[in-house]
Nucleic acid binder design. Structure first.
Lengths: 357, 357
DNA sequence: CCCCGAAATGACAACGATGTCGAGGATGCG
DNA sequence: CGCATCCTCGACATCGTTGTCATTTCGGGG
């Protein structure tokens, strides 16, 4: 049989372009039936050690790797987790995806991902692309996709939304309203009365919930809401951030900023430095690289992508076991992490109101 | 629309478990043969407009999405790009993957990705997972996988390595040696004689090539190489960076640092600030968020992940058309971007040597 | 009015793997 | 020594889709 193998190997070698080995090729080379090869590569019981060894050797010799398409087609179960997010270049989602993949690997699952770029049409395309696979679960940060569509998918595999939610679908979110209110209240408690809000103008409520929390905190403190202090842009790249920073050159400039996302905070900080402006008090949503190295360190609302990724993955796996479970809304706790930038007093204390609580 | 959604959700709710619609289900519902449905969803010619409309309507009604496993199995061609990288949480790779996905989407391709975590065993597993799919191409940042394995894969689909190379395989890299030499020479030209090198201790030559470039530049300038100024750690997290920063507390502390990766630079900057040390001259490999906001801005060797991603993708697509093409080595140009931190003179000019060129 | 050819459609097999079930051989027990 | 039993292994059908090729249909020309 070693002889047989050598012959087979030689034959294989002779072929200039060796096509991918199939299970049947292994079976022929090893002199067993396809089913037996299948049993071996799937670690099923009921194969004689001798046979098993022979097959395994042949598998190695031919470099056989089972075809996932065929395997997925035959088995109804899948071992791929789909992730659909806004953009992988967003550090929040990079960390999020990283955790999900880490956990998936540990369970022998694959990860396939796609990004929407905040675009509804692209989201639809990508969603079809992902759901064309038999998935073991789908994690999606929904842009425009509705509850009905997701509910339809949910009959096929577990679905969890992240960062945003849809009725009837499991969600992993934070308390945007409460966290924003807390951050705003903290700024107010240091004497600020003119607090600006900067955020992306995205087609989902994350930022608007934060804006609502901001307004609510202002109201609770008896500070009038000034719409001119709310700056939203589709993105906070250099250009938009520069424009936003002009707010600080006004006569009635805000003395504090609440940035609704870390991207907004980064852009704003860059613009402020680039224009040589004096740094106002600032609180960011979400930590970011080097935020603690700035002078002062950037105070932020902790909004840990790793916790959220772990929560989403955990829920996905629970749903895999209990597909009929009631949808739950997992609110990952947040907390305000002071690092300096949020605890400075107004530069121009017009009318210090002192602690509001 | 909220109403519509509620209605749709209710309908979905009503159906206890609606199994996924198959092509055959569409065929039956539309009163045509499976093959005709196939023709319609693949936009093949030779279908009467009436029939086409009828089928398309049924497809929508049933929410039919073709099964990718079956499709991939039947067609031999695939439309999925595989990416295997060290870690998606590394901003370099996040940006890299982002570009590749962007380009892939534009051509109607999917992306499946996996990370190695710098671990050889995990790399092997992940590689099998990825190559179990029929791929339209594979981009890999190789850890331990050898030229032979990749050559085997190359007979099945285009393979491009990135950041590191393997003989006989197309590669997209930068000139690590040259770029490090240039950066080191620049530091020396500002009068530094004690320049430290900090980098990860990774099992591939990227960092060691940079170290070699550093040594070469020292030699060219007649500055003796001091091994105690080379600090390598497996990772540059808080702990390791803190240890590395102790170098700066020595009596004969270096006056300049060359950081072999942006992660090393970030960790080092964090540690320096955390310990309240005086900032030495510093040049980083690779830009990072907020690097320009620090005081002074961090001078870096531009090492653009977006360019590299685009180059890798382009090469993949070329190879798809010409599978037998000779492997090429694409060296993405780098340049030293001065922002201040690399252009400061030594704090303690022991023996200024002036410009060495 | 019939026949021909082109266009539209369908029947059938096959992609590569695995689930079901049955066949055959070795083993244990009376 | 014979029979029941267990264990190993293989034959065959099948997952959902598409390629090949045959068949039907329809309009037009003779």
């Amino acid at each position: 049989m070693t002889h047989d193998e050598l012959v087979a190997a030689a034959v294989a070698e002779a072929a200039p372009v060796r096509p991918r080995a199939r299970l049947i090729d292994v079976a022929i080379a090893a002199g067993v039936s396809p089913k037996t090869v299948s049993r071996v590569i799937n670690d099923e019981a009921g194969v004689l050690p001798v046979t098993r060894d022979k097959v395994m050797r042949t598998v190695r010799d031919l470099g056989f790797v089972p075809d996932r398409s065929a395997r997925e087609l035959k088995r109804q179960a899948a071992d791929t987790i789909g992730i659909l997010i806004d953009a992988i270049s967003d550090p929040f989602f990079a960390a999020f995806v990283s955790v999900v993949e880490e956990l998936a690997v540990a369970e022998g699952l694959s990860v396939i991902f796609a990004s929407t770029g905040y675009d509804a049409a692209r989201e639809r395309t990508q969603l079809e692309r992902l759901t064309g696979h038999r998935l073991a679960g789908l994690v999606v940060a929904p842009v425009a996709v509705g509850a009905a569509t997701l509910a339809g998918l949910r009959t096929r595999f577990p679905v969890v939304t992240v960062d945003r939610s849809r009725s009837g679908i499991d969600a992993v979110v934070i308390d945007d309203f409460g966290a924003a209110a807390e951050a705003t209240a903290a700024l107010l408690s240091h004497g600020h009365r003119r607090v600006a809000f900067m955020g992306e103008d995205v087609p989902y409520p994350t930022v608007s919930d934060r804006l609502a929390g901001y307004r609510s905190a202002l109201e609770a403190a008896g500070v009038p809401f000034d719409p001119s202090l709310v700056v939203t842009h589709e993105r906070f790249q250099a250009g938009e951030a520069a424009e936003a920073s002009r707010l600080l050159e006004r006569a009635d400039a805000p003395t504090a900023l609440l940035c609704a996302t870390s991207l907004a905070a980064i852009g704003t900080v860059q613009a402020i430095r680039a224009r040589g402006l004096r740094m106002p008090a600032l609180v960011s949503f979400g930590d970011f690289t080097l935020a603690e190295v700035l002078e002062p360190g950037i105070t932020y609302v902790d909004h840990d992508p790793r916790l959220m990724g772990a929560a989403a993955f955990r829920r996905l796996r629970e749903l895999a076991v209990h597909p009929e479970a009631e949808p739950t809304r997992t609110v990952v706790p947040t907390r305000l992490v002071p690092r300096g930038s949020g605890e400075v007093a107004p530069s121009f204390p017009l009318d210090p109101i002192g602690a509001t609580r």
